[in-house]
Design a protein around this nucleic acid. Structure first.
Length: 567
RNA sequence: UGCUCCGUGGUGUAAUUGGCAACACGUCUGACUCUGGAUCAGAAAAGUCGAGGUUCGAGCCCUCGCGGAGCAACCA
């Protein structure tokens, strides 16, 4: 750790999070030889969601910023809940977010041997004992947060006896639940976690990495701090709910360590988003019950879901950066997340024409057999993205709600007698329209165009208020478009009584649109390609898309002041 | 009636560690615009949960309240 990095970072940013301040202080004080080493420790029991992104950005981000390293460590101490399926997805999502653990992919299960030895050592030192009581008795003896616990009758069992039993537990001699290993700390501690916590339990299921080698498995508390210690972690960053575990973390590390080095646990606030549910268990239920299409359903807060929705890693990192790290239990506004994607995509997404709800416009004075290619800027924010040619002819589709038979005040779009510009082409005037007498649906709009108003060479001096996007009817590519809205219509779907989050599922969270008309250049777009459909929003190609059967997802709409005026 | 943590515009965060409460999102104006987008300019919005105390001076330190969260899994 060089002073340069410290100095440089101090000057570059006006304020840093309290965690970063701790890190800077530790580095300055030369703690742990002045190095920083973090870890990201997911349990492989589900897919990563945006809450994990917050942790990932901190763990990898701090290491990166201060010249340190960050390990990936799978916290796989409970074989009954964990599956290999999740490991690959977790790795993919971290890489996608833009971070890399290099060759430091570790597993808590790598340390089962060392952990077992440490447990034996504690037993020998009289700091751990085997308890033969069933779970409910142990639980009752723990007391409550307001009443101290009472000691187990097995607490004073000779170390030799505990040792013998612990070995036999691991050999598979005893049933699950019949015995546990407990640390001998303090049954009257005001901190429940210090009341002789269980550190090992018997589990006979096969483990995804160690198979049937072990019959006893360490609890989270008995694995985490020690794993940090084994890996040389200096800053062990985790969420607020582990705050009360810290004394136990420290107790275990203190009894394990043989030198000056020690990892430090620091807690920060978890990411909460309104209208969103972050619980892995409940997200799994949504998947299993078919309430969503899968873990990567574009309405899910999972990283794979957001990716499929069209979110960029940059936008997620930016969002995480905007919300910061504190100790306040904050509920963040989804609109900030949406702002972050818009901000990113605005600079990078090519503009294209797509008509979601087509209405045919016939330009009666335009030659029937003529086709012109008009040149259109791909991105006014970035001229280096160039231009493209878009075919124009006498029949085009416009958006159905861009025409009104009886327009209200301040409607700048097409209406009988009104003039608008077809972006990149000509100004047209609505002369008449065809309406189905029975259904009342407008079937066609008949317009005339003014040849003198061609974009780029308009010498007519005409000014119109409205500019519409359009697609040539003879060249359009057909597509399905999926419009997404928030999955829940309650601000805090998971925070209500019982598990009735299901009743807050938004029935309109997915709108399937078929027969949408897109400009021909979109026919060759690949999954995850991102575009701005001009005047509508940002869209990306879905995995379900095939040549000839394009499928697009709406990532997020554009800000729409007109919609707001009319709400 | 235990322990731990947290209370700053609607939301999320700042405040050079005791010195004029700032920024972003959102909201609302106006300008510009061949996207009712973007951009630009501006406005409204908290006097920092409350009451005391220390101090020339408190969002920051102290005391007592009030409110919220976490902790009683052989989960992580």
């Amino acid at each position: 750790m060089s002073d340069d990095i410290l100095k440089e970072n101090e000057e570059s940013k006006p304020s840093v999070s309290f965690i970063e301040q701790f890190i800077i202080e530790d580095l300055k004080a030369g703690k742990n030889s002045g190095r920083i080493h973090t870890r990201f420790p997911p349990e492989p029991n589900g897919y990563l969601h945006i809450g994990h992104a917050k942790a990932i950005c901190l763990d990898f981000g701090m290491a990166q910023k201060y010249g340190g390293k960050c390990n990936l460590r799978f916290d796989d101490t409970n074989p009954v809940k964990e599956e290999v399926e999740y490991i690959d997805s977790i790795k993919e999502d971290i890489h996608w977010l833009g971070f890399d653990w290099e060759d430091r992919e570790f597993y808590a299960s790598d340390y089962f041997g060392k952990l077992f030895e440490f447990a034996i050592d504690l037993i020998k030192r009289g700091l751990a004992y085997v308890d033969d009581q069933p779970a409910d008795v142990i639980s009752a003896q723990k007391g409550t947060p307001t009443r101290p616990g009472t000691e187990s009758p097995f607490r004073r069992r000779p170390a030799e006896e505990s040792l013998n039993l612990f070995y036999r537990m691991n050999e598979g001699e005893f049933e699950e639940g019949s015995r546990v290993l407990r640390a001998k700390i303090d049954m009257t501690s005001p901190n429940m976690h210090m009341r002789d916590p269980i550190i090992y339990r018997i589990i006979k299921s096969s483990h995804h990495r160690t198979g049937s080698k072990w019959n006893v498995y360490p609890m989270y508390d008995f694995a985490h701090g020690q794993s940090d210690y084994f890996e040389g972690i200096t800053h062990s960053l985790c969420t607020l709910e582990f705050e009360v575990h810290r004394p136990l973390y420290d107790w275990l590390v203190d009894h394990l360590k043989t030198d000056d080095y020690r990892p430090r646990q620091i807690e920060f606030n978890r990411l909460n988003l309104n209208y969103t549910m972050m619980s892995k268990r409940k997200l799994l239920e949504l998947v299993q019950e078919g309430k969503v299409g899968g873990w990567d359903d574009p309405r899910m807060p999972t990283l794979c879901g957001l990716r499929r929705r069209g979110y960029t890693p940059e936008s997620i990192r930016r969002f995480v950066d905007l919300i910061g790290y504190t100790k306040v239990e904050a509920i963040n506004d989804v609109s900030l997340l949406e702002h972050a994607v818009r901000e990113d995509l605005n600079l990078r997404a090519p503009r294209v024409f797509g008509v979601l709800d087509p209405l045919k416009v016939i330009i009666t004075n335009y030659p029937h057999d003529k086709v012109e290619n008009v040149e259109i800027l791909n991105n006014p924010e970035d001229e280096s993205m160039g231009t493209r040619m878009v075919p124009f002819c006498n029949e085009v589709f416009i958006e159905r709600d861009d025409f009104m038979e009886n327009p209200p005040h301040k409607f700048f779009r097409l209406a009988p007698g009104a003039e608008v510009r077809l972006k990149g082409a000509y100004i047209i005037k609505c002369e008449s329209f065809k309406k189905n007498e029975i259904t009342g649906i407008i079937e066609e709009v008949h317009c005339t165009y003014d040849p003198a108003t061609r974009s780029g060479g308009d010498a007519s001096g005409k000014k119109v208020k409205g500019t519409l996007h359009w697609v040539s009817a003879r060249h359009a590519v057909d597509a399905e478009v999926r419009l997404y809205d928030r999955l829940f219509d309650h601000e805090d779907p998971a925070g209500q009584k019982d598990d009735d989050y299901r009743s807050f599922l938004n029935p309109d969270s997915l709108k399937l649109l078929k027969g949408c008309k897109l400009e021909p250049s979109l026919g060759s777009a690949k999954p995850l390609d991102k575009f701005q459909f001009q005047r509508l929003g940002y869209f990306c190609v879905d995995y379900d898309s095939k040549p000839g059967q394009m499928v697009f997802n709406r990532t997020v709409g554009l800000k729409d002041t007109w919609a707001k005026i009319n709400k």
